[in-house]
């Protein structure tokens, strides 16, 4: 975020405040004794373009991220899940992601799926995320927003999409190589493909 973008944002009306639904699983919440709790590990905040919102991550993602020792949260932006709809468009969805992020105890990893990946990419340009993970992104802005605080960035796309021009443009903008996963970009919440993808994301987060 440059000073100029910040100035112009402060001169536009702030999106209406909504009561956002967030789902949280902390490592200590797990009854399963087989978890590691790493107090230094960054929390993770997930967000999807799917209308189910935070609930989409509940069954598999949040639990497995918490088992990995991280504070796991997901947010429903306005209109998703039980968060009331409100005016504002993309800018307001990004606002919701940033607001959810600052509510977490520590600097957080942003994981976005589908349209949610685009909102997370924009949010990472306003808030210094610990890392940015985009899973099967949809409608990323033409001009890829430059993240603040230079977080590590990961892009995961389905094998079918990996050769597309758009994906190449995105990986070029961030200077990274994409990770590919089998199956469709919409089926990331359950099934063996989803588990493989999630494990790849977690081991990327835990590397080094």
């Amino acid at each position: 975020m440059s000073l100029q973008t910040w100035v112009s944002r402060t001169r536009a009306p702030e999106p209406v405040s909504v009561k956002r639904e967030t789902a949280v699983v902390e490592p200590a919440d797990l009854l399963d004794a087989d978890y590691r709790d790493d107090p230094d590990a960054s929390p993770v905040l997930c967000c999807t373009g799917d209308p189910a919102g935070a609930a989409a991550f509940g069954a598999l993602w949040l639990k497995r991220i918490a088992t990995d020792g991280r504070y796991a949260a997901a947010v429903s932006v306005r209109g998703q899940g039980s968060t009331p709809a409100a005016a504002g468009g993309t800018g307001a969805f990004v606002h919701d992601v940033v607001q959810a992020a600052i509510g977490l105890p520590r600097r957080t990893v942003l994981i976005g799926h589908g349209h949610g990946a685009a909102w997370c990419a924009e949010a990472a340009a306003r808030y210094p995320a610990a890392a940015l993970v985009m899973v099967a992104p949809k409608k990323l802005p033409k001009r890829i927003p430059k993240p603040v605080g230079s977080p590590p960035v990961m892009l995961a796309v389905s094998e079918a999409d990996s050769q597309s021009k758009r994906v190449q443009a995105v990986t070029e903008a961030y200077g990274i190589a994409p990770l590919t996963f089998p199956g469709s970009g919409d089926e990331v919440f359950k099934g063996p493909n989803a588990e493989g993808l999630l494990d790849a994301v977690l081991s990327w987060l835990n590397r080094g």
């Binding site: 702030e14 405040s17 509510g103 306003r126």
Partner: peptide
């Protein structure tokens, strides 16, 4: 609030 918060760490919007 909106003109006083730290640009990359906004205050809660409520």
């Amino acid at each position: 609030r909106a003109l006083t918060e730290i640009p990359d760490f906004p205050m809660p919007d409520h």
